[in-house]
């Protein structure tokens, strides 16, 4: 952890009206590192990601990406700097074809040949998407939609991905496939901040992890250490 972090949150607070959702969250992610953020419902995991991609404005603290503060930068510009967000529930453009969905992922790329090359890469990573290229996004199954959502984010060749609940509502076999892909991102040098309810899966895939409780970080450390921590095991792993 000596390298300069690619993403750093320093004492970030956020609120919805009178409700304080985050109370001073600090997270560091090194380049190429997979970091898991686990916690219960309503702990503020999704809000954390939203404040990073500037969909929700932080009320205090600072968010730096790649060395500069991105606080208050429009979401589109955050994406342009190489930080892609795959939100909860996948949010595929249902009435756009798979190919158009991927093209939207590369909205900021203007070179058509480059888009085509990356699209071919995506079809190689997820062959099923290649078979369905002309189909509308809304007609895909849940697992296929999740793959499309990740593939769409990768179209920009980002430096970092924010993944929100990629396993939500998917069959175990599909979940394993998705996590294989997430692990493979490490080889491509893409850092990942992974939010998960499925703590077991997340901790096995991640290098390090943070535990979020009612808007504050309560534990942090190497993922495997947390996996063995009795308190964590009891609270989040059901063992």
């Amino acid at each position: 952890m000596s390298a300069a972090p690619i993403l750093e949150l320093r004492d970030v607070c956020a609120a919805y009206g009178p409700i304080q959702a985050l109370r001073g969250v600090s997270i560091r992610v090194a380049p190429g590192e997979i970091v898991a953020l686990i916690g219960c419902n309503g702990a503020g995991k999704t809000t954390t990601l939203m404040t990073v991609s500037q969909v929700v404005r932080a009320t205090a603290g600072d968010v730096t990406f790649d060395g500069c503060s991105i606080l208050g930068v429009p979401t589109a510009d955050v994406v342009a700097r190489g930080l892609c967000h795959v939100p909860e529930g996948r949010r595929i453009f249902a009435r756009l074809s798979v190919r158009e969905n991927l093209a939207m992922g590369a909205f900021l790329v203007r070179d058509k040949a480059l888009i085509q090359r990356r699209m071919d890469d995506a079809f190689q990573l997820f062959p099923i998407l290649g078979e369905r290229a002309g189909q509308l996004g809304g007609t895909l199954s849940g697992g296929e939609q999740q793959m499309l959502a990740i593939a769409r984010a990768l179209m920009l060749e980002p430096k970092m991905l924010l993944l929100d609940e990629p396993s939500l509502g998917l069959a175990p076999l599909i979940v394993r496939r998705i996590f294989d892909v997430i692990r493979s991102l490490r080889e491509r040098g893409i850092a990942v901040l992974l939010v998960e309810q499925n703590a077991q899966m997340a901790l096995r895939a991640a290098d390090r992890a943070y535990v979020l409780e009612t808007g504050a970080i309560t534990h942090e450390g190497p993922a495997l250490t947390l996996l063995d921590d009795p308190a964590i095991r009891e609270a989040y792993l059901g063992a």
């Binding site: 991609s53 969909v55 429009p74 979401t75 589109a76 994406v79 342009a80 892609c84 967000h85 939100p87 949010r91 453009f93 249902a94 009435r95 756009l96 158009e100 093209a103 939207m104 992922g105 909205f107 900021l108 769409r152 984010a153 920009l156």
Partner: peptide, 23 residues
Amino acid sequence: RTGTAMRATSQDRVMAGLVGIDV
């Protein structure tokens, strides 16, 4: 490209912002 971005925005405005479309 802009037309497709329009369709994408009409389907999910937040997500359109997250893929870098200036909504």
